[in-house]
Design a protein around this nucleic acid. Structure first.
Length: 669
RNA sequence: UGGGGCGUCGCCAAGUGGUAAGGCACCAGACUUUGGAUCUGGCACUCGGAGGUUCGAAUCCUCCCGCCCCAACCA
């Protein structure tokens, strides 16, 4: 793992639990976790949360974390996914060492566990068909009924189960079920299915088996086989925990470790403006709504990686979102923030004009070229390095940086206005050249001030803004892909008409005429660069060819001018902020119950002992006293606590009397 | 509706009987050769609601409300 991996993870209920278990000596002091994906899809940032949690826990407590493929359903699983999963975990920066496992490698042992269960009369072969099983299960409000096959003898069940394995029956003819309780209020406990007959080639086991265990059976027992101590999963498995415990407890004597693993659930990650369910991601891929599992607009690890996100940023993000049990949707701006924070202090700044507008400097000699010094890092990034940027008579600037009729607050170029070209000269716009046919601005005619070389004026005059630019002749053409959120709404999954209706048509904008300063072509600068005033970009390795450079925008820079423009647009101004005028709540503390005569007497008795303490506390906490007097009366509780502490062992002082005394002193001098 | 969970700022999230942390977002200002970064300040008199217990409640008790999960031979 890279050394930038966070070393001070946040506190959460899971780490609290692990520490309690460690303190109690459970599991012989071991901490063993696992990340158990099913190889039926690509990993996404929601999995990253789980990976960071499981591997992070192991790292923090000197334990290990296993990577285990939960491959019990041959129909949906593929080797391609296995490799993508391994690549994803490794890319994130985690190492499973020797601990790479397949649940399907445990099939023989799992079969033996099932036989053991049958011998104990805790499992039976059921011969109801699928519909009947559903029917017998009952509903959430009505109990289920026992299957007519539920009372088969142990011998009969043993025989049938072995013959299921031997392939004597058709798919679906029989299943193995746990014998628990068909009237359990927990639907999951109504004799859950343990094994089904399914003739399908397994990507890892081939045709070795024609019966396959279900998740509810395979998962807890795989955990037990591996000596997992803490089995962490997401909230939707809460109801399955009862089976988990039932199984590991039922088979505890046959298990390799004395303390069985226990399952703990936490909330899965949701992110705004995207989708996180494997099913919907698959749909996007299969319907070609995106270019593939690694489409840079997708929240898949493959997509984020191809987009240019860094594992450091993703780990930081996973740490900041915390781990809890409340369903939540994290604002994607937090992810973007983490990515900027990671890149800001380390990547070189270069100049790239995304949408070029030609600019001719009329008083600059034709054919002249100057090499201007430009540092790679701004003053606030403590890194060294610079390059030469060629300056000439014909340049390109960003189209957005010129306005014929500048709106209020516009700091850039407009007719007659002077601005600075970054690291170069002050220029003034003298005239505009338009295409007579379309009226489109095709060229700007400017003059420069030779005295401002480097970007500052000897006479100290100021300029409203600084623009990035490139020399037309020396810059190199590049393709730039501007990625934006895939959906137009925060919660596409909640959309009535399906997520397709809210796809953002502008989620990918491909710019083919962008121009990059020549020095930035050098690959030794690194794969990630900041294009000044635009954002962080990634020299996309899979999309670039030797003669054709492609840059992906990872994340734009914050843009307060764009926000200003937003605010000024009439569309944005429409929704009047419904100011929730909450009437000030009457919070006057209910008056303290008057002291009884007895209490009054007590007070007088104890006053001499308590008074010095009260005064001491008051003197020791002048700011609190000040805040109390300015209306923050809640602090009284804090002051009472201080007096109580000093008054000696609990119970010595009557808090009510302390309260009275304190209030008296506070309202007095 | 039976069962299992969860409700603390716009979004996450600490806090578990004694002053409602922090981050993102947002707002204002300073600084600035990136409208970036940085810095400063502002952002919950109150914790889903109502009662109760207590000197003192987001924390304990009671009732209520809302949201999520469970009736695949998926995981």
């Amino acid at each position: 793992m890279s050394e930038t991996a966070p070393s001070t993870p946040g506190r959460d209920f899971i780490r609290d639990m692990v520490e309690r278990d460690l303190a109690a000596g459970r599991h012989g002091g071991r901490v063993v976790t696992r990340f158990p994906p099913e190889p039926n899809g690509y990993l996404h940032i929601g999995h990253a949360k789980s990976i960071c949690l499981n591997f992070g826990l192991a790292l923090e407590y000197g334990g290990t974390c296993h990577l285990r493929l939960d491959d019990t359903n041959p129909e949906t699983e593929e080797q391609e996914y296995v490799e993508a999963i391994q690549a994803g975990v490794r890319w994130l920066g985690f190492d499973w060492g020797e601990n790479f496992f397949h649940a399907s490698d445990y099939f023989e042992r799992l079969f033996d566990f099932a036989v053991e269960l049958i011998r104990r009369d805790k499992a039976y072969v059921d011969s109801l068909n699928e519909d009947e099983i559903r029917d017998y299960r009952g509903t959430v409000t009505e109990p289920g009924r026992n299957s007519p096959y539920r009372d088969r003898t142990v011998a009969e069940n043993l025989d049938l189960f072995h013959r299921m394995r031997a392939g004597e029956f058709a798919d679906g003819a029989h299943v193995l079920r746990a014998k628990i309780d068909m009237s359990s209020p927990n639907m999951k406990m109504r004799d859950p299915l343990l094994y089904r007959i399914k003739r399908a080639t397994h990507y890892h086991r081939g045709d070795a088996w024609c019966i396959y265990p279900f998740y509810d059976f395979a998962h807890p027992l795989s955990d037990a086989i591996e000596g997992i101590t803490h089995s962490l999963c997401t909230l939707e498995f809460e109801n399955n925990r009862e089976i988990y415990d039932w199984l590991v407890d039922a088979l505890v004597e046959s298990l390799p470790f004395p303390d069985p693993p226990r399952q703990t659930e936490f909330a899965r990650l949701n992110l705004t403006y995207t989708l996180m369910s494997k099913r919907k991601l698959l749909e996007l891929v299969e319907r070609r709504l995106v270019a593939g599992w690694d489409d840079p607009r997708l929240p898949t690890l493959a997509g984020l990686r191809r987009r240019g996100f860094t594992p450091e940023a993703i780990r930081d993000f996973c740490e900041r979102i915390g781990v809890a049990k409340a369903n939540s949707t994290v604002d994607v701006t937090l992810l973007e923030h983490c990515q900027r924070e990671d890149l800001n202090p380390q990547v070189p700044r270069v100049l790239c004009v995304l949408r070029p507008l030609k600019l001719v400097i009329e008083n600059y000699p034709e054919g002249q070229v100057e090499e201007l010094d430009a540092p790679f890092y701004p003053h606030d990034v403590p890194k060294e390095g610079s390059r030469k940027v060629p300056f000439s008579r014909v340049l390109y600037i960003e189209r957005d940086d010129f306005a014929e009729n500048p709106p209020k607050g516009f700091h850039r170029l407009s007719p007659g206005r002077e601005v600075r070209l970054r690291y170069a000269y002050f220029i003034r716009c003298e005239s505009i050249v338009k295409d007579p046919a379309t009226d489109e601005i095709v060229e700007l005619r400017c003059t420069y001030d030779p005295a401002t070389r480097g970007g500052s004026a000897p006479d100290g005059r100021k300029v409203p803004g600084t623009l990035h630019w490139v020399s037309a002749e020396h810059s190199v053409p590049v393709e730039v892909r501007l990625y934006d959120r895939l959906f137009k709404v925060e919660r596409p999954d909640l959309e009535e008409g399906g997520f397709e209706s809210v796809l953002n048509p502008g989620s990918l904008e491909t710019l083919t005429a962008s121009r990059l300063e020549p020095a930035a072509v050098d690959p030794s600068l690194g794969d990630r660069l900041q294009f000044e005033r635009q954002g962080y970009f990634y020299r996309a390795p899979v999309d670039s060819t030797s003669g054709h450079l492609v840059f992906n925008r990872i994340v734009p820079l914050r843009d307060s001018w764009a926000q200003e423009v937003q605010k000024q647009s009439p569309a944005a101004a429409a929704p009047a902020p419904a100011q929730k005028a909450k009437p000030p709540k009457e919070t006057e503390a209910k008056p303290l119950e008057p002291l009884t005569a007895e209490e009054q007497e007590q007070l007088e008795q104890i006053r001499p002992t308590l008074l010095p303490i009260v005064q001491g506390v008051l003197a020791a906490h002048p700011t609190e006293v000040e805040r109390y007097r300015s209306g923050k009366t809640g602090i009284l509780g804090f002051l009472v606590a201080q007096v109580m502490k000093q008054a000696g062992p609990a119970g010595k002082a009557n808090p009510k009397l302390v309260n009275v005394l304190l209030t008296e002193k506070l309202s007095g001098s």
